[in-house]
């Protein structure tokens, strides 16, 4: 169980502004045109072991979805490689494997509105010869039932379903490709809370049945704690802490992780006293212009001179996790 399955190696992703011809000329002539690129993912190395679920947590805009898309072979990395069982996920900007599949955040956008859901689910497996066209109906019916939908729904269009049902369809589409690794990019973030629980339970059930490896991306700390074996905390394009879920939640060692956990409203009040929420001070800095040194230094309560000058690297803590902070132990 301890063999590395997905390996992300020194992934960097920058988004450069695409300049129009006019802007390019203006920039040459010295006009103020935004030419800086966004550092969405900044030198991230990560590995997922076969069979485990890794939770990837961070605020919106921290690059977690971008990292997920690179791992899924949807976006090419600016540099670094994503590989699955030793083989690159993408070669020359084209995805080369069907072993990684993705469930997207918004089930209203991720299903083609002009295609019946049966065709949406069958399209990939038929294209990659996992099934023949004549088997498609029973295959699709089987997957619809496994995700808790009626097999007779295959003829219907996405608009005829609720958000939760659509997300079930999206899960069926991903799993029908018989992947080894499932990437869930905020799969419940756009659903009602009551529906979230259903989808999470469905996900846990299918993960158990299919023995699938999973990268679970979310900003919801309680959801991630519920589903993950290990958890990685991302801040401004970098991993700041990674470790066993329980270790990270019970003894967070990076100040950002601590701040993040402190800012979550808790249902159980200790000693009937009002637990004061401590929101993280300040805004996430612009990824166009990340701060020097540790990227968390403008908001960090323990920031010192060294944090502004020197960028901390991930290093092992006594408690078992790895943390990128000069002053944690």
């Amino acid at each position: 169980m301890s063999e590395t399955f997905l390996s992300l190696d020194a992934i960097i992703k920058r988004f450069s502004p695409s300049l129009s011809v006019g802007d390019q000329i203006a920039a040459r002539l010295g006009a103020k045109v935004e030419t800086r690129s966004v550092h969405a993912v900044d030198d991230v190395s990560l590995s997922i072991l076969r069979g485990e679920t890794l939770g990837l947590v961070g605020e919106s805009g921290c690059g977690k979805s971008t990292l997920g898309r690179i791992a899924a072979g949807i976006l090419p990395a600016t540099s670094g490689t994503a590989s699955l069982g030793g083989e690159a996920v993408m070669i020359n900007g084209r995805k080369t494997t069907t072993e990684v599949q993705t469930v997207f955040q918004d089930p209203f956008a991720s299903l083609d509105p002009r295609m019946p859901i049966g065709d949406i689910i069958a399209e990939g497996p038929i294209t990659h010869n996992l099934i023949t066209r004549s088997d498609a109906k029973s295959y699709v019916g089987g997957w619809l039932e496994r995700v808790g939908l009626d097999a007779g729904f295959a003829e219907r269009y996405p608009h005829q379903f609720s958000g939760g049902q659509r997300q079930r369809v999206a899960i069926a589409r991903a799993l029908a490709m018989q992947p080894q690794l499932l990437i869930c990019d905020e799969p419940v973030a756009s659903l009602d809370v009551s529906i979230q629980a259903q989808i999470i339970n469905l996900f846990l059930k299918l993960r158990r049945e299919l023995q699938i490896t999973c990268l679970f991306i979310s900003h919801d700390l309680s959801v991630v704690r519920h589903v993950s074996d290990r958890v990685a905390i991302m801040y401004l394009g970098r991993i700041v802490e990674i470790g066993e879920t329980e270790t990270v939640y019970s003894s967070p060692s990076h100040p950002y992780t601590r701040a993040l956990l402190d800012s979550v409203p808790k249902l159980v009040l200790e000693d009937d006293a009002l637990v004061e929420l401590r929101p993280i001070v300040g805004e996430i800095p612009s990824p166009l212009d990340p701060p020097a040194g540790c990227s968390f230094n403008p908001r960090c309560p323990m920031a010192r001179d060294r944090c502004i000058k020197e960028e901390p690297q991930l290093r092992a803590m006594g408690t078992g996790q790895q943390t990128a902070c000069h002053f944690s132990d």
């Binding site: 949807i74 956008a109 991720s110 509105p113 002009r114 294209t127």
Partner: peptide
């Protein structure tokens, strides 16, 4: 730019198929 096109890249489907079966009808 919509997710269903990204989903098609993620499957992956051929470019031809993405253009004619997904992009064009929409």
């Amino acid at each position: 730019r919509k997710d269903y096109i990204e989903a098609a890249y993620g499957t992956p489907l051929s470019r031809r198929r993405i253009v004619f079966r997904h992009l064009l009808p929409n």
